[in-house]
Design a binder for these strands. Structure first.
Lengths: 115, 115
DNA sequence: AATGTATACATAATTTTCTTATGCATATAC
DNA sequence: GTATATGCATAAGAAAATTATGTATACATT
């Protein structure tokens, strides 16, 4: 993961969301998809991605299938059942997080809150 | 900082934004304000906050004024001129970050992007 | 009198997460 | 033959946080 350090801590959530959406993906594919979605803003580094994938797998949230395509190895990851449940929680947390950060940047003009 | 690990990396930006908005604040006040704004969701821990304030000060982004109020010590922090400039950049980064994360959670139905 | 909660600062040890650097290997374009 | 793209991996180090303490004042409760 690179750039503004704000992305720290969001890699796992990003991976899980993409897998939920796309069924299965391999590491390199994830980096390219993220680059595309963020218009080149976020480049996931391999040093961050692969350890993260291995950890999610070790936690039982992801399953792997190895395939050889064009004489090159690919490791396809997909969410386990447990991973799908956890993804729901992570996405809820992410939305809460985004809401909170927006409230910090653009303080509500809510008369109920005195600040 | 606590909770969903998504907040990792956002503490400096939060501090600077609050100081930009409120002129000057002391550490404990920052923790309470954040708790209020996020409806108790985000609790900044002292072990994260104080080192962060000291570092921002060391980088010349914050100035300190020590005051004794009600026989208790307070260290008021405010943005330096350099800190104000930097805050503009950090907030731009934060908004970009939020946009990107939203695009990940809620993929755009933009026909220009093929994914 | 003792205990708990709130206010207010601080640091040290450890953990988590990421960056940076490196390594291996295949395929294609220049 | 050199560079770029594809595809995986790990190791050393840095950065940022958590967790656990420590000090001190003030006020409320038991």
């Amino acid at each position: 993961m690179k750039n503004s350090q704000l992305y720290k801590g969001s890699l796992n959530t990003i991976i899980m969301k993409l897998l939920e959406e796309n069924g299965r993906m391999y590491g390199y594919e994830i980096t390219q998809k993220v680059k595309l979605i963020t218009a080149g803003e976020l480049n996931i580094t391999e040093g961050a991605l692969y350890p993260a994938l291995h950890k999610l797998e070790a936690e039982g949230l992801l399953d792997v299938e190895v395939e050889k395509v064009d004489n090159r190895l690919r490791k396809y990851y997909k969410l386990t059942e447990s991973g799908q449940k956890e993804t729901v929680n992570r996405l809820a947390e992410l939305e809460e997080f985004i809401r909170n950060m927006q409230n910090l940047v653009t303080p509500k003009q809510n008369p109920d809150l005195q600040f």
